[in-house]
């Protein structure tokens, strides 16, 4: 049964990955990318890595792909122009691709875990613990220093985004909520008797 689902997920994933590259409309590309991510999550589930599966859906489908979608729809990217030099670079690109593929094949064929790796495992997972629970057990205890460091990395990213994009323009009218709340009808609304046919 698992084999059936494996081939189902794998086929759809590879097919949609191809569509991502070949689709003419970039919005379709992004939508097929989401489909590929969902099937990837299915493959992770089959492999018993349910945490990675959830992460893939939440982070990649939920955030990254939607961000791509916004970028594609909001920025006016001329894809025809981008593809102009395509034919010129195909031979070089294909050559590099073939070399990398051959190398990866060599690595995959000639690769096996070392004998010592079983005894070196830092946090072996007991058979009856799901890997989400196992991660939870070490993330805030053994690896708390990494957790804090990641927080600093995110802080840096936030400061960077603000530094590079926030413009303080001098002549912009800003909302002053305090002032708005303090307004009442007595102070700001003025009733006037307007004489007929003369105006204010």
């Amino acid at each position: 049964m698992a084999a059936v689902f494996f081939y189902l997920f794998a086929t759809i994933m590879i097919a949609s990955a191809c569509v991502v590259i070949f689709a003419r409309n970039p919005v379709h590309s992004v939508l097929f990318l989401i489909l590929a991510f969902c099937n990837g999550a299915g493959l992770f589930l089959l492999a018993g890595a349910e945490f990675l599966a959830m992460l893939l859906i939440v982070v990649y489908v939920g955030a990254v792909a939607v961000l791509f979608l916004f970028v594609v729809m909001m920025l006016d990217v001329d894809f025809a122009e981008l593809k102009q030099g395509f034919a010129k670079y195909v031979p070089v690109g294909a050559a590099v691709g073939v070399v990398v593929l051959a190398e990866l094949a060599m690595v995959t064929v000639g690769w096996q875990p070392s004998e010592a790796s079983k005894s070196l495992l830092e946090t072996p997972i007991a058979a009856n613990v799901s890997n989400t629970a196992a991660l939870g057990q070490v993330l805030y205890t053994k690896y708390v220093i990494f957790f804090q460091t990641s927080a600093l990395v995110l802080l840096t990213a936030m400061i960077g985004a603000i530094v590079l994009t926030l413009h303080h323009k001098p002549n912009v009218k800003r909302q002053n909520i305090e002032e708005q709340n303090a307004r009442n009808a007595k102070n700001v609304v003025e009733l006037k008797k307007v004489p007929f046919r003369t105006g204010v």
Partner: peptide, 9 residues
């Protein structure tokens, strides 16, 4: 690749 081989980081 290194982690997969040695089982430790």
């Amino acid at each position: 690749l290194l982690y997969g081989f040695s089982g430790t980081v």
